[in-house]
Simulated scan of single mutants.
Amino acid sequence: MAKRSSGQKLATALLTSLPLFAVLGSTAALSGCGFQLRGYDTPMLFNVAKTAVIIEDNRTSFPLKLPLTRRLEALGVEVTDNMTSADVANNNKNATAEPIAAISVNNIRFKRYELVGVLTEIRLVISADVSYQALQNGKVVTLTNPIQVERSYQYNEASVSTDDQQGDQVRDWLYDSLARRITDQYVAIALPRVAPASANTPSQTGSASTAVIVPNAPNP
């Protein structure tokens, strides 16, 4: 009975640890082999393995570096943060050097709007000017796009605590949300242009092609 009890405990421990091993295994596969989009035959890999993250060195901009780096590395991107835009441009001019993509984030700023009532309604907005430099068909493509993320919350100034702790949490959320938006745009720009599997698979009902007609927008 003692042996049977110890065997049951061992089996229970192994079953409990299976989800953890599955998470670790999927994370390693994601970071090592790229990721696969639904409808595509093969995993998607970036045209350029290394990406320089260029962020201004000040108190407002620096908190974005960690969440942005984590999100890029989760997609298998090798992030380097010790280069400037000039360094990236000089590297890519060298035909023998490994190409490097770049994400430059400038002019990060916060705006705070207050609507005073029984409870103060606060809307906190973070904005940034983001430039992406990637390779498409062997050519350098640069795109600059402003990004803005906002969130509202209520603050009771008559409370015992005068610290706006919820405002600090909202700022952390805004940094993480901004990092997610930047990563999503970088994926759309930097991934190779590959047709989905459905586009290359003939229809089972016949070989006739189907035309998709988009109606014109109505006149205002």
Rank of each mutant, 00 (worst) to 15 (best):
G167R: 02
N90T: 06
V170K: 04
S61V: 04
T42V: 14
Q204P: 00
T84F: 00
Q204E: 09
I54A: 03
S152N: 03
S209L: 10
F62Y: 13
V48H: 01
D176V: 01
K139G: 03
P220A: 11
V214W: 04
N200C: 10
Q133S: 09
L124Y: 01
I54E: 03
L15Y: 07
N200P: 13
T144F: 04
V118N: 15
N200K: 15
Y186K: 00
E114N: 09
R71T: 05
V214G: 02
V105F: 10
A195H: 04
S152E: 06
V194T: 14
P192F: 04
G7I: 06
I108S: 12
S177T: 09
L66P: 01
L14S: 11
P218W: 12
L15N: 13
R123W: 01
A13L: 10
A128G: 08
S31A: 08
D57N: 10
A49C: 02
G32D: 11
K111T: 13
T80N: 02
V194K: 13
Q185V: 10
N82A: 01
S203W: 00
V48T: 15
L119V: 14
L72F: 08
S85E: 09
P63R: 01
I126D: 02
Q36V: 05
F21E: 07
S207R: 04
Q133I: 08
L115S: 13
Y113N: 14
N216L: 15
T144V: 07
A217E: 08
S127L: 09
L135D: 00
F35V: 03
L10T: 08
S131G: 08
R181F: 14
G117V: 07
V53D: 00
V48M: 05
I100T: 09
T80S: 05
S127N: 11
Q154G: 07
T120N: 15
A128H: 14
T69P: 01
V88N: 02
S177D: 08
